[in-house]
Design a protein around this nucleic acid. Sequence first.
DNA 1: GCCACATAAACAAACGTTTGTTAGTCATCT
DNA 2: AGATGACTAACAAACGTTTGTTTATGTGGC
Lengths: 193, 193
Amino acid sequence: MAKKVKTNKRQVILEEAAKLFKAKGFGGTSMRDLGSQVGMEAASMYNHISSKDDILESICFHVSNTYISQLNEIEQLPVSYVDKLKALIRLHIRLMIEDGAAVSVANNDWKYLSEVKLQQFKEARKTYEKGFAALIEQGITAGEFQPMNVSVALFTILSAVRWVELWYRPGRGITAEELEENIMTILLNGLAK
Amino acid sequence: MAKKVKTNKRQVILEEAAKLFKAKGFGGTSMRDLGSQVGMEAASMYNHISSKDDILESICFHVSNTYISQLNEIEQLPVSYVDKLKALIRLHIRLMIEDGAAVSVANNDWKYLSEVKLQQFKEARKTYEKGFAALIEQGITAGEFQPMNVSVALFTILSAVRWVELWYRPGRGITAEELEENIMTILLNGLAK
DNA sequence: GCCACATAAACAAACGTTTGTTAGTCATCT
DNA sequence: AGATGACTAACAAACGTTTGTTTATGTGGC
């Protein structure tokens, strides 16, 4: 039996859409824009996707699923809470670098999801945040972290990692590893001497 | 002589627009949406504003002007670099709390500014970031901060403060002061014990 | 002959904005 | 005091575009 050589057009559409949504926003990107980027007429894309919303959903849930499954793996590692936190921060930076466009869309354009999917997405995010927060809380209890408001810590970390999407480019004179090292130093040890 | 009782309708439009843009994005907010929020027909608003872009520009540049002028004041305070940085972080959190909608628009919807204004805005932002970075750099030179990549520190701080716009609500069980204290502790001293 | 995929053409809906008009307010002149 | 004219601010209706999507048709490979 021959291998399927099909270049998945749907995947191409999703990838180009992520780039355009990141650059111009969901509302700012028309199906005709997207079509010309993909290399076909807007109408033709409807052979591969069912709607513009369908595209947004696929991107957003692909990202949220990735985060959640990775969190589950990290939770079960037999290491200190400091190391778990480091792994999580690294995960965020890696995903931002490897799949920046999609992550950006999931970060910024999720609010344009349709009613039903919007609720699902918010729930997924809450699940992830709860798991992340629990990890911080346990780290504090174990005496590895300073006592502090867990929500504040959680969101500070999540946000501190976001700018990478806007800033990082391979030719910036800093490698992904250096970037991770720098950010983790600030978050774990602070700026002050 | 009687007092001028004029409620500045333009200001009302700008404020309601900021709220709607924050909630639904610039592209996702129609002039009819905005009109019904303000309490007049879309067409009537054109007696007070010259275009939808005009609204976006006013909001964005109001915010960027505020940041830049405040930075200038802080730069000239006769205090340590640690204290200057603290003042800047406090400034960001305060503006986020007091004028969250406008700040949110300037953070997220600036990219929809028209060609010319977009360039101006980017320049203003770069000016601000340069001043902020210089302050960090001097702090490192003075031995008050750990040696580190200045850009990484800058953007980590700027981002770490952004989530407040999404999260903070007066009834969260945490005051603005506690919030500032917590965030500054993480950024300056880190999470680790 | 059929299936997968591409297209052009058309669709209704929604968009930002312009137009023409009206009602009210105020200072000025008689 | 009353008339005049300029100004402000509101409105309904319509404009030309652009939007996401559908329909009908065509085409190349199995």
